[in-house]
């Protein structure tokens, strides 16, 4: 029955920063090959949810599972450290601010993970990087340093870097919000390409149109809870909840 097992599953996720509770018991499940978009106003907890899947934020309570393995296992010290490093190798994460390593070339940014963590040979990693860069349309930038790239190019390299680890799921944390409007499309195009290849993806975004085009399912979060979820056609055309309607009206009219 392994095909039925969700790729990513979150159960009862709770998280507070000081007195503010940002996640108030979230449940979420993403099937293999499924693309889920999470939308919601800023401060709704959507980024915290995504970051807690990668354990960049430790949940106060609740569980995160990746392909049948618990991410936030109740281990301690070095044992947890070893565990989380293994788990993270199977998840690709893309940040709002790219976080490319400025001291390394595009090639080294991409091959560093496979070479050091997976023991891949340099030539093999080079071929892999070249293939991935062709896919994101940047094969000619292989020897460039990140500072020479535009924001859109940086983000495409960051996606290639994440893909180089052959992740089971890709997590996108507002991948286009730091970009100039004219650079958004080139990044969205790459994400659509991945969607066409049935990469499992969880996308936190504020771009309703893109979410509608690419996602199989849309989640609307507000105030630390999932208010409503469903296929984009239903969510955008006929939202059931008042809060969803208000949010969408504000956004779609803007």
């Amino acid at each position: 029955m392994s095909m039925q097992r969700p790729m990513v599953e979150v159960r009862g996720a709770r998280k507070s920063f000081g007195a503010a509770e940002v996640l108030k018991g979230i449940d979420l499940s993403v099937d293999r090959g499924q693309i889920v978009a999470v939308i919601g106003p800023s401060g709704s907890g959507k980024s915290t949810l995504l970051r807690s899947i990668n354990h960049l934020e430790a949940l106060d309570s609740g569980e995160v599972w990746l392909d049948g393995m618990q991410v936030n296992q109740p281990l301690h010290g070095q044992a947890f450290e070893r565990h989380i490093n293994k788990v993270r190798q199977q998840m690709g994460m893309v940040f709002q601010h790219f976080n490319l390593f400025p001291h390394l070339t595009v090639l080294d940014n991409i091959t560093m993970g496979p070479v050091i963590l997976k023991g891949m040979s340099k030539s093999e990693a080079h071929a892999l990087a070249h293939g991935l860069l062709s896919k994101v349309g940047l094969a000619d930038k292989i020897d460039a340093y990140p500072s020479r790239l535009s924001g859109g190019q940086k983000q495409r390299v960051a996606i290639a870097r994440a893909l180089a680890m052959q992740p089971k799921v890709m997590l996108f944390d507002e991948a286009t919000s730091a970009l100039d409007p004219e650079l958004v499309d080139e990044v969205n195009a790459v994400m659509k390409k991945l969607a066409a290849e049935h990469m499992t993806m969880l996308i936190v975004t504020h771009e309703m149109r893109f979410a509608g085009e690419v996602a199989d399912r849309v989640l609307f979060m507000d105030g630390g809870v999932v208010v409503e979820e469903g296929p984009p056609s239903e969510m955008f055309r006929a939202p059931q909840k008042e809060r969803t309607r208000t949010f969408l009206k504000k956004y779609l009219s803007a």
Binding site: K86, R88, Q89, M91, G92, F95, N99, I116, L117, R161
Partner: peptide, 18 residues
Amino acid sequence: VDRGQIEAARTIGFSRFQ
């Protein structure tokens, strides 16, 4: 050094020391 750099390296799966 920007915190995002550490996060990016950690999400790839690098240990603290790496």
